[in-house]
C-alpha cells in the first residue's frame, strides 16, 4: 500500500474508529446510551478534521457546516433522549433542522439563482425530513448500507473528499452496528447520523455532481426499514445499494483514468 493510500486509510478508518470505540467504551463504563450518539459524532468529526482540516464560523463552504450541524443535532436530541419530547415537538424539530440544514447548504446556489435551485431545495428538505423520520422510528441496517453506498458513489462519480467523508461515516456506523446490533442509537444517534448522511448526499449532488441514478437507488434502500423481519430488512436495504455501487463503479471504469 502506497503512502498516500495508507494516509487515506488512517484518516478514513483508523482514527475515526479509535475515537468511536473510545466513546463507546466510555458509554459502556458509565452505562449511558448518549455515548452512542457521541461515538458517531466524535468519530466523524475526527475524520472530518483530518480530511477537510478547516473550521471557520460562519463557514465559507457548504461542507464547513458539518461540525455545526453535528453539534447542534447532538445537543438538541440528547435533551430529547434525556427528557423525552412529545412526538409532535420532535417532528417539528426534525422538520426545522432539515429545512435549516438544506437551506444553509444550498445558500450559495440560492443566492446565485433562486428560482433554478428552488426545486432542489424543496426536494432536499422533504427527503432529509423523510429519511430522518424513518431512521428515527425504525432500526435496521439501512443507514449503514446507504452510508457505504454514498461513500462509493461520491468517490467514483463526484468528489474524492466527499467519498472519504462518507467513508468515515460508514466506518463509525459500521462499528455502532457491530457493537449495538440490538440496541438503537437513540434520537440523538439517529439525529447525528441522519444529519451527516443527508448533508453529504446533498453536498455531493449540488456541488460535486454525483450521479443521480445511483443516488436515487441509495434513497430507495431505506425501503428496507419498512420490514421487521431481518431477512427482508437486510435484503431490501442491501440490493439497491449494491446496484447503486455497481452503476457508480461502472461509470468510473468507463473513463480513461482516475484520480487527479
Amino acid at each position: 500500500m502506497g503512502p498516500l493510500l495508507l494516509s487515506m486509510v488512517r484518516e478514513t478508518v483508523l482514527w475515526p474508529s479509535l475515537a468511536a470505540l473510545a466513546m463507546m467504551a466510555a458509554g459502556a463504563l458509565l452505562q449511558n446510551r448518549l455515548f452512542n450518539a457521541l461515538a458517531i459524532g466524535t468519530g466523524f468529526l475526527v475524520g472530518y478534521a483530518l480530511i477537510y482540516g478547516k473550521f471557520s464560523f460562519p463557514p465559507t463552504e457548504a461542507q464547513g457546516w458539518l461540525p455545526v450541524f453535528v453539534a447542534s443535532a447532538f445537543i438538541v436530541f440528547a435533551i430529547d433522549d434525556l427528557k423525552g419530547f412529545p412526538f409532535g415537538s420532535r417532528l417539528a424539530l426534525q422538520g426545522l433542522f432539515s429545512t435549516a440544514g438544506a437551506m444553509l447548504l444550498l445558500l450559495p446556489l440560492l443566492k446565485t439563482d433562486f428560482p433554478a435551485n428552488l426545486a432542489e431545495l424543496v426536494a432536499s428538505i422533504l427527503l432529509w425530513f423523510g429519511l430522518w423520520i424513518l431512521v428515527d422510528m425504525r432500526q435496521g441496517p439501512a443507514l449503514f448500507f446507504v452510508s457505504v453506498g454514498n461513500a462509493a458513489v461520491c468517490a467514483t462519480t463526484g468528489s474524492t473528499m466527499l467519498g472519504q467523508l462518507g467513508g468515515v461515516l460508514a466506518t463509525v456506523l459500521g462499528i455502532h452496528l457491530a457493537l449495538n446490533l440490538k440496541r438503537p442509537p437513540g434520537h440523538a444517534g439517529s439525529a447525528v447520523a441522519t444529519t451527516i448522511l443527508a448533508s453529504l448526499m446533498l453536498i455531493g449532488h449540488a456541488y460535486a455532481g454525483t450521479s443521480t441514478l445511483p443516488t436515487l437507488l441509495l434513497l430507495a434502500a431505506f425501503a428496507g426499514l419498512a420490514f421487521k423481519r431481518p431477512v427482508f430488512a437486510w435484503s431490501f436495504s442491501l440490493l439497491p445499494v449494491a446496484i447503486s455501487i455497481a452503476l457508480a463503479v461502472k461509470h468510473y471504469l468507463s473513463q480513461d483514468g482516475g484520480g487527479y
Binding site: 463552504e61 457548504a62 461542507q63 450559495p108 446556489l109 446565485t112 463526484g158 468528489s159 474524492t160 473528499m161 466527499l162 453536498i203 449540488a206 456541488y207 460535486a208 455532481g209 473513463q255 480513461d256 483514468g257 482516475g258 484520480g259 487527479y260
Partner: peptide
C-alpha cells in the same frame, strides 16, 4: 486535458466552482 480531472478540480475537493465561479 482530461474531463474527469476537470470535474474533480472544479468540485468541492479544490476550486468548488459552483460556490466560487
Amino acid at each position: 486535458n482530461f474531463d474527469k480531472r476537470n470535474k474533480d478540480l472544479l468540485g468541492p475537493d479544490f476550486f468548488n466552482a459552483k460556490q466560487f465561479p
